[in-house]
Amino acid sequence: MNILLFAAVDLLAICVLTTCLYLPRHRRRDLVVSYFGINVGVFAVATALSSSTVGVGLGMGLFGVLSIIRLRSTELEQHEIAYYFSALAIGLISGMGPTPAWIPIALIALILVVMLLVDNAKVLPRYRHQEVVLDRTFTTEQQLESYLSTVLGGAKIHQYSVQLLDLVNDKTVVRARFSTPDVPVADSTAGLQGLTDASIPRTIADHEVIAQETR
């Protein structure tokens, strides 16, 4: 009877995790299939192991092996890794089925509540991370940080690291963590007025307009 109860709890929990939390927020159908498959698979194996003499140790070993295999097969975003481990944990907790029954149910509910609250657009909504390709090089870190902030619309740069400094082609690749300004987008471009024309990246359309004006 407990197996049927935990199976129902597991299916309900993975449905909530994928179709109610992950899919509406991130829209990746392939990972929904992956989350369902890994969750049900871990639940089935954990249920079989819990009824034998191998104990919990082998179940945790299975958790680790599956994690390594899945994470090495393709590159995942950090939030996708969080959902992946949540699906694994729900399957393992449901399959092992510790007693009394309210313990696994409470643990699964805790996982769902944490993912509901943490992966929310209202949590740190202004914080971003991005890799930016700049069309120039810089002699000092102050110049780089100031120009990067201007390019990102007046964002506050919290941390950045230079991934590529190409002095031949005059290019800099920077990975930045920043927070967007709490002002309208139209106002955030005011800092570009202080830049020279040579320091502002132009698109192909901009060059065509300039060429027509000079004729």
Results as ranks from 00 to 15, higher is better:
7 A>W: 11
98 P>S: 06
15 C>I: 11
135 D>F: 10
92 L>M: 11
74 T>P: 08
53 T>I: 05
138 F>M: 02
116 L>I: 03
25 R>T: 02
147 Y>P: 00
2 N>W: 10
63 F>W: 12
102 W>A: 03
15 C>W: 14
23 L>Q: 08
159 Q>P: 04
127 Y>W: 10
132 V>Q: 03
190 A>C: 05
167 L>V: 06
152 L>P: 06
152 L>R: 10
214 T>N: 14
7 A>M: 08
190 A>G: 08
112 L>I: 02
94 S>L: 00
105 I>F: 08
193 Q>Y: 15
118 V>Q: 11
136 R>H: 06
68 I>C: 02
99 T>F: 13
100 P>D: 00
198 A>C: 01
205 A>C: 03
83 Y>M: 01
72 R>W: 11
2 N>G: 11
40 V>M: 10
46 A>S: 14
85 F>G: 01
9 V>Y: 14
165 L>M: 05
174 V>G: 04
77 E>S: 14
154 G>C: 03
71 L>G: 06
31 L>T: 05
151 V>R: 10
145 E>R: 15
193 Q>K: 15
13 A>R: 11
159 Q>K: 14
93 I>P: 00
38 I>G: 01
122 K>Y: 10
5 L>W: 14
64 G>T: 07
94 S>G: 07
73 S>T: 13
107 L>V: 05
22 Y>W: 01
214 T>S: 14
131 E>L: 12
57 G>T: 05
44 A>T: 13
94 S>N: 13
166 D>F: 13
45 V>Y: 07
135 D>L: 10
69 I>E: 02
72 R>D: 07
14 I>S: 03
19 T>A: 14
149 S>D: 03
59 G>A: 05
146 S>A: 15
90 I>Q: 04
161 S>A: 05
160 Y>W: 13
209 V>T: 06
1 M>H: 10
61 G>M: 03
76 L>Y: 15
6 F>N: 07
38 I>W: 08
33 V>K: 15
207 H>L: 04
42 V>L: 13
173 V>C: 02
67 S>C: 07
86 S>F: 04
143 Q>Y: 10
34 S>I: 05
73 S>E: 01
206 D>A: 06
91 G>E: 00
201 P>E: 02
126 R>W: 12
176 A>Q: 06
188 S>E: 00
151 V>P: 00
136 R>L: 00
167 L>C: 09
48 A>K: 11
8 A>P: 13
41 G>Y: 12
123 V>I: 09
84 Y>E: 05
84 Y>L: 13
25 R>N: 08
140 T>L: 00
51 S>A: 11
9 V>P: 00
75 E>P: 12
26 H>R: 13
174 V>H: 12
42 V>I: 15
213 E>L: 15
77 E>C: 08
83 Y>I: 01
23 L>W: 12
4 L>P: 05
106 A>R: 08
33 V>R: 15
96 M>S: 13
158 H>Q: 09
87 A>W: 09
147 Y>S: 04
64 G>L: 03
74 T>A: 15
67 S>E: 00
108 I>V: 04
165 L>N: 09
57 G>N: 08
87 A>V: 01
207 H>I: 02
46 A>P: 02
165 L>G: 02
170 D>P: 06
81 I>D: 01
190 A>Y: 14
200 I>T: 03
203 T>F: 11
155 A>S: 12
183 V>M: 12
172 T>I: 03
30 D>E: 11
177 R>P: 01
189 T>W: 13
72 R>V: 01
140 T>R: 10
10 D>C: 15
186 A>G: 07
